[in-house]
Computed example of a mutant assay.
Amino acid sequence: MKETCTLVDPERVREIVAKSRYKQGVLVHVLQDIQQEFGYLPEDALRIAAEEIGLSLAQVYGVASFYSQFYFTPRGENVVRVCVGTACHIRGALAVLERFEKELGLKDGETTPDLKFTLETVSCVGCCSLAPVVVTNEKVVKKKDHQKILDRLRSSRKE
């Protein structure tokens, strides 16, 4: 099979696959390691991994697309998630989302061109008593601290 790798080092992907070759559930481990290495799952890396493991590219995509932890496009260094679950929705999540969209210049699911920020919505983060909730880089932020986060993001954008 002809290699068409443009974004990734094929040998690095082979090393990642080799490291996990004998683990149970090898594909998930390989996908996690590829994403750790590149920040997302580049198609070229998935093609090489599929070939090395002996699976079709469709099988690899089937597993990768099943899990919400995997991403097929580059993500920002700062990920802002706005919870839009029932409790958060009732307590103003859409207004919160609009504030973050305006501040970051993004819509849900988008990443800034400089890869500093990704904005996304999530169905529930399990902190309903703090609603509406925003999660920035895995840290839960309750409503009273949203402005602090917006200020920090604003100053970070100027750097």
Rank of each mutant, 00 (worst) to 15 (best):
Q24A: 15
A95V: 11
V133D: 04
A18T: 09
T118L: 04
V63F: 02
T86G: 00
A64C: 02
D108Q: 00
Y67I: 00
V125F: 03
G62H: 03
S123G: 13
E52R: 14
T118D: 05
R14H: 13
E51L: 13
D108N: 11
V60M: 14
D108E: 10
L41I: 04
S20P: 12
L55M: 15
R152A: 10
R91M: 04
L7W: 08
G92S: 00
L94G: 06
T118M: 06
E103C: 05
L57K: 05
V141C: 13
A45M: 07
F66P: 03
K142G: 00
P42L: 00
G54H: 02
K158C: 02
V84A: 01
F72R: 08
V80M: 01
A45S: 07
F38T: 00
A18L: 11
Y22A: 04
D9P: 09
T6W: 14
K143S: 00
K158V: 01
S68F: 11
Y67K: 08
K143N: 04
Q32A: 04
G25H: 06
T6F: 15
Q36W: 06
S156V: 04
R47C: 03
P132H: 01
D145A: 15
T121G: 04
C124A: 08
K116N: 03
Q24N: 13
T121A: 00
K139Q: 15
D114W: 01
H146T: 07
R75E: 12
A87D: 08
K102T: 11
G62L: 08
G62N: 11
K158Y: 05
C127N: 09
A50H: 13
L130P: 06
R12Q: 13
P132L: 07
T136Y: 12
A18I: 10
S129T: 08
S68E: 15
S123N: 07
V13R: 06
I34D: 09
L130S: 00
F72A: 09
M1S: 11
R47S: 06
A50L: 11
D108S: 05
V63S: 09
T4Y: 13
D114G: 06
R152I: 05
A45Q: 02
R99H: 05
A93K: 09
L115N: 14
H29L: 05
V60I: 03
E101K: 03
S56R: 05
C88V: 07
F117W: 10
K23N: 11
H29G: 01
E103I: 02
E138V: 02
R75P: 01
G62F: 03
K142Q: 15
K107W: 00
D114R: 08
T121S: 02
Y40S: 11
A95C: 02
E159R: 03
L31Y: 03
T118K: 10
A50W: 12
S129E: 14
Q69E: 15
G126H: 08
T73A: 09
S65I: 02
Q69V: 11
K148V: 09
